[in-house]
Amino acid sequence: MAGEIVKTSVPITFMYKNRVGRSLETYINGLKGKKIVGAKCPRCKKVYVPPRTVCGKCHKLLDNIIELDQQGVLKSFTVAYVNIINGEIKDTQEPYVIGLIKLKGASSLLSAVIKASSPGAVKTGMKVRAVWKDTTRGDYNDLAYFEPV
């Protein structure tokens, strides 16, 4: 038996066109107009952001789309020193903050990038507000980041 380990490299490249779905289309359309929308459950009144198609708790279809306040409270965060790109862990140029935000009127937490004077200035419990790109194109990046109020 030879000691060398022989391997083939077999890249499997697929191209998928995944439909984002009805609810997220509403959300993306909202972002284009610099609005954050959520879906309200007719039964438990929970407000999901971004909107979901179904309330997991009540099994109700959610078609009541409401506009949400663009301010909220930071509930938890992590400072990212790396990005995971194509399955590889790569250093970021600058560390950045990923936070979970409870928007006023929302029941679920929204994940977003938080920008403050420095990552050290980010604290759990602080008030944050949405910052938009100057020109919106109808994609997730239109909502650029959240910053301390």
């Binding site: 938890s76 992590t78 590889e88 990923i98 994940s111």
Partner: peptide
Amino acid sequence: VPLTQAYTMDPAYERPRALINYYSAAAL
């Protein structure tokens, strides 16, 4: 492993936004 984990993230929201993955979720 992070790549196969990335494929469990939904292609509609989390995957294009690239903020929530198994690592950042555990960190939060």
